[in-house]
């Protein structure tokens, strides 16, 4: 217990230091932050939260439903035993089960707690926000001029999430998950909860509904604070960092990919809207960098990382970020190199 508390404190402290550092830099560059800047910050901040709330709620609700209504055996029956088939299935699950990246982390943790292998849950977590009908159609509209971008985006997202899950399956065995409020019965946090499950529950359906709502709201608080902090950081970046600081590299292949990935990480917009932002850069950026923006952003951004750190061990999250970054950067660089894709002929 003590160790966990120390770690939590250390992470909070590190986080405060980081925010202080960023704030200090911002203040140095912009000595005159006006009231209207602050109101703009507030509008962007609240708008991200209002937009993300329903999706976070879906996420914690699904996680709580998994906890209260499904047994491990039921879920295990549906899973193929073969590792590759297992990961493949996870990659396509988003088609029938579209969850936006704001709500996916609690679902992934809930799946692991029900016996789904960690690597499959991670593949699902990376793939579902991109490989789903809503995102596919919004990308198709945004890139009406280059419809092949849709296939590149979906294909690349599938490749990255599959490869990341497959690699992780060799290095981690599932002990990297930190159990949260929904997995502890009623959020006692006493440590006994997930061993003897439902030790004080009647089996009545209404009681199950009550416990589902209860653990959903506990997990809402557990994850919500990271969503809020992440949204605040993204809103700060949007309000106070001029875009041309990161985005004046344009046609240079590798630099454009790196800057677009940084940009996606920083602004944390929803995966069904980011295609429109990417499309507005189509004239000035390489096709590979636009793909990097649209594949990396939904997988890893500020608010997502904070929630992942809450659900998984820091070392695991670090390895995951490195793997995904490398996969995205290398594959989009190869795409640029092969000069396939639309934006090159614009």
């Amino acid at each position: 217990m003590m160790v966990i508390n120390m770690k939590k404190k250390a992470i909070t402290l590190l986080f405060l230091l980081l925010s202080a550092y960023i704030a200090w830099h911002l203040l140095k560059f912009l000595p005159n932050i006006t009231w209207s800047d602050f109101l703009n910050f507030k509008t962007v901040f609240l708008s991200i939260i209002i937009e993300a709330l329903p999706f976070l709620l879906i996420g914690v609700l699904v996680s709580a439903l998994l906890q209260n209504f499904f047994s491990e055996e039921t879920i295990r029956k549906f899973l193929p035993g073969n590792r590759i088939l297992n990961i493949l299935l996870a990659g396509f699950l988003g088609i029938v089960f579209p969850v936006c990246e704001c709500g996916i982390v609690p679902v992934a943790r809930g799946l692991v707690s029900k016996g789904v292998p960690l690597y499959s849950a991670i593949t699902f977590m990376l793939a579902a926000p991109i490989i789903n009908p809503v995102v596919a159609s919004s990308t198709a509209v945004a890139f009406g001029a280059n419809p092949e971008m849709v296939w590149f985006r979906l294909g690349l997202a599938f490749f990255v999430s599959f490869a990341a899950g497959y690699l992780l399956s060799f290095w981690f065995d599932g002990r990297e998950v930190k159990w949260g409020a929904a997995q502890d019965d009623f959020g006692c946090g006493c440590g006994h909860a997930h061993y003897d499950h439902h030790h004080h529950l009647p089996s009545a359906f209404t009681a199950k509904i009550f416990y589902t709502l209860h653990s959903a709201s506990d997990e809402f608080f557990d994850m919500g604070k990271y969503l809020i902090i992440g949204s605040a950081l993204a809103a700060l970046a949007q309000t106070f960092v001029p875009r041309d600081i990161i985005l004046n590299v344009g046609h240079h292949s590798l630099a454009s990919i790196a800057s677009m990935m940084t940009f996606a990480f920083g602004i944390s917009v929803c995966s069904s809207a980011d295609a429109f932002i990417a499309a507005s850069f189509a004239g000035n950026f390489t096709a590979g960098s636009l793909l990097a923006f649209m594949v990396f952003g939904p997988m890893i951004d500020i608010k997502n990382i904070l929630m992942m750190l809450n659900a998984f061990q820091a070392r695991f999250v670090a390895v995951l970020i490195i793997i995904v970054s490398l996969l995205v950067a290398v594959s989009t660089y190869l795409i640029n190199f092969a000069a396939v894709g639309g934006a090159s002929d614009c």
Partner: peptide, 9 residues
Amino acid sequence: ITCCSADAM
């Protein structure tokens, strides 16, 4: 505004 004012262009 496509989704929310965070994506305002």
